[in-house]
Every structure is written in structure tokens, then in C-alpha cells.
Design a protein around this nucleic acid. Structure first.
Lengths: 227, 227
DNA sequence: GGTCAATACTTTATCGATAAAATTAATTTT
DNA sequence: AAAATTAATTTTATCGATAAAGTATTGACC
């Protein structure tokens, strides 16, 4: 399960650092799909010994971001249109289910969190306008989507949702690296936020589902070499 | 993701062995919930060095069977009625969805597999009659349930289903270790199998959902100290 | 008697070294 | 020259040792 932003008080370890950095490098596409991950090389790059590196890779394999082939090491997970569709279909299911539960259970604190994270994202949207979304935008974007489902009581649902969110994010960042995208994403976020705070589950879920699906469609339709 | 019964040709490694054995020991309850897993001890018990053991534990943590607390090692994941309900609810969703897809996509080979694995399970059911289900029954039982969804095309759905299957199995084996259970489980399997081969999705899913839910209820109602 | 801190003891996380396996290159055979 | 061997090189998986962190113990002090 993704341990990147776990709020536990567990002390940070070299494995954690390697995991977090490797994860970000895979999600951003800096480590491209299919790339062989040689431990010797990663050791120098991430400043850790073989054990922490291998442990981090084991975790990432659990998240489906890398794959492990016994006796022949690790590589970055491949991508394909077929898998994108699989991920998206399941993610829509999980996201909407989690959102419904969050709307059901969310309290004032949750509302405040949703509003605040939306605000931070939209301010960044304004400022960046037509620019490339950078690391910070990705961070805020993730925070916003996390805030929506943060009031969902189901640990397991959120766990799986998190994994699929990461998967989707990787596809999006791989495909839209320089494709601008002509959708009004900021507006979609706004509508989702409003419907959510209105406690209009049906509408919020429909909007969120469309948001996820349309992003996937944009990825699939971007000129993109795969399979 | 669970790598226990992956059909890839990847050579088996010490980490794989440790993973498989630890997993079985946790599912069977030999390693009880909350137990501290000291690497030094596991090293001698499973005959491997610290690195393979730690790697195996990292994988298990991804499956939610152990938890890792930075700088203070690993322990077997705790259990609670609340989590059992969470797991069950989500598992019903996944199992039925996967079964529906399998019924939709399954070919003759799949039908043969379902029938064969049901047969092996039911033969064992007859022979054991009222006895404790042992390791072999668990194996056959798992094979049967796996066969049902084996024709499902969605990798990710099956991945998550597998994880939740393991979780459910642990709860069941923990709770029903000596409680006999007065349900006709073999009969339930038969009905599920028949509805599935009849390609009656609605009925098969209803039966499977009830099967999963009733097992969970039996676990919850067994005299069982937890939370 | 209970609290606190200094000390001794475990355990974890991590490194560096190495045998086994896989890959690549070189060489021979058909 | 293509295929098959064999040799050389790289890479993985794994072990044993160790520093850093955590936990338990002891004993002084109020």
C-alpha cells in the first residue's frame, strides 16, 4: 500500500526516502516505462545501499509501479492503452464509491479541508494559467482529490483508490507531458467541489466520474506510442 | 500485489520462499495478529538472511498482512470486527464484479477449469466430512474461487480481489479454528458453480455475495476476542 | 512508593563483500 | 555466415558485520 503520505509518526528511514523519490521519478516519467532498474546505478543516484533500494522497489512492485522478475531484477512497469482502460474503469468505481461515503460521513472539518485544498489548487491554476503544471501543481491536485475522499471511512477502499490514483497520474503525466489539453480542468474541479459541499452525491459522483474518464480519454487520444 | 501463485516463469528466490511461508503462517494464524516479527528470529526460522526476510515483509505489508513501523520493525497486522466488515463489503463488490466479467468472457476452457476445481474441492469435502479443513482443503477452496474469476479480463480487479480474498481467509481461519460452522458450505459452492456454468450472472453473483457475507457473519459471531 | 535519568542491552536499518545467475562477447563448428 | 559452445563480464540475490535507534534496567532522589 502506498506509504508516501502516511500521517503516522514512524521515523523516516532510507528505504522511505528511496521509495518516495523513486515513486516520484516513475510518476513523472523521468524513469520511463520498461526501463531496467539496475540496483548498482540506483545506489549511487539515490545515495543508499542495496538493501534499502531493493526494499523500496519491493514496495513499488506492490503498487504496480515496478515489476520484479525473479533473478533478473526490477524494471519500471510497462504501459498500454488496454491497461489504462482497466485502471480507469476500476478507478471510477472506487472514486465514486469513496466520494459517496465521504459525503455521507464528512463533518465540518472535512468541508473545510475540501474548500481549503480547492482554494490552494485554484490559486495555482490562476497563476500558472497556460503553463505546464509542475511538481507543485501535481501536489496540490493530489491534495484536492485526496481531500474529497478523506472522510470516507473505508481504509481498504481508500488504499485501493490511492493506488489507482497513482496509476492514473502516471499515465496522465506521461501522455500530457507537452500536450496542452483543451479542457477546463479547473472548472471541473470547481463543479466537483461545489456539488460535494452541497452534499449532492449523485451529481458529485457523476462529475468526478466524467472528470476521471475524460482525462483518461485525453491520454488515450494523445499521440502516444504504446503497446 | 500477491505473488504467491503467479504463473510467470520467474525463478524462485529466497525472498519468494520467505514470502510464501510467512504468508501461509499469517493466514493460518500460526503467527497471530499483533505479533512482533523480529528479523533475527525469522532468520533462523525461515533459513534466510536479513535482506530476503525484510523484502518478504515489505511485500506482505503491501498486501496488508503485516505492518511496518519505521525504525521499530514489522508486526502481524491486527484484526478487528470493523475491519472485517470493511473488507467484506469491498470484497463482495470485487468478487461479484469479477465473476460477472468472467461469465461474460469465459470460454470452454474456463468452464472446464471451474468444473474441475469444484470437483476436486467437493471430493475433499466428502472425504473430510465433519473434520477440520486442513491446508489441502484451503488450497482447493482457494483454487475453486480463483477459477470462478479466472476468466475476468481485468488485471487490477483480480489483483485487488486476490488481496481481499487473503484478508477474508485470515479472518475465517482465525475465527473458525475450532468453531465447526453449521452452514452447508459445500452446497453453497455447488450452487455457485451451477449458476456460473449456466451463465446466470445475477444468480451466481447473488449466491457468491451471500456466501462471502455469511462467512463473514459467522466469523463476526464466533466467540472472538478482538478490537 | 513513584518519578527521572543514566546505563546496559536489544533490535533495526544499513553497508560492503561475495557466490550464483544471467547476459554478453568470443570462438568454434557446421 | 548461422548456429552452437564456451569464456568473460555484468548484475542479482544474499550473507555477515555494524552503527544508530529503540527498549529495558537500575538506582538515585524527592
Amino acid at each position: 500500500m502506498p506509504t508516501a503520505d502516511k500521517p503516522t509518526r514512524s521515523k523516516t528511514t532510507l528505504t522511505d526516502i528511496a521509495y518516495t523519490r523513486l515513486r516520484e521519478d516513475i510518476l513523472s516519467g523521468r524513469l520511463e516505462p520498461g526501463l531496467k532498474l539496475r540496483v548498482e546505478h540506483l545506489k549511487t543516484h539515490y545515495g543508499a545501499g542495496a538493501s534499502p533500494i531493493r526494499e523500496a522497489l519491493s514496495r513499488l512492485t506492490g503498487d504496480g509501479l515496478t515489476i520484479a522478475e525473479g533473478r533478473r531484477g526490477f524494471r519500471v512497469a510497462e504501459v498500454s492503452n488496454a491497461e489504462l482502460m482497466d485502471i480507469t474503469e476500476l478507478r471510477v468505481l472506487m472514486e465514486t464509491r469513496a466520494l459517496r461515503m465521504a459525503i455521507e460521513a464528512g463533518d465540518d472539518e472535512w468541508e473545510a479541508l475540501v474548500l481549503a485544498s480547492f482554494h490552494r489548487l485554484s490559486k495555482l491554476d490562476e497563476r500558472l494559467a497556460m503553463e505546464q503544471p509542475g511538481e507543485e501543481w501535481e501536489e496540490r491536485h493530489r491534495d484536492f482529490h485526496n481531500s474529497l475522499v478523506s472522510a470516507c471511512q473505508s481504509r481498504w477502499l481508500k488504499n485501493f483508490r490511492d493506488i489507482l490514483f497513482d496509476q492514473s497520474e502516471r499515465y496522465r503525466r506521461l501522455a500530457l507531458a507537452n500536450g496542452p489539453g483543451k479542457r477546463d480542468v479547473a472548472g471541473e474541479h470547481k463543479q466537483i467541489m461545489e456539488a460535494t459541499l452541497d452534499r449532492d452525491s449523485d451529481r458529485a459522483c457523476d462529475l468526478l466520474a466524467a472528470h476521471v474518464q475524460e482525462t483518461a480519454d485525453a491520454v488515450a487520444n494523445s499521440d502516444w506510442v504504446c503497446d
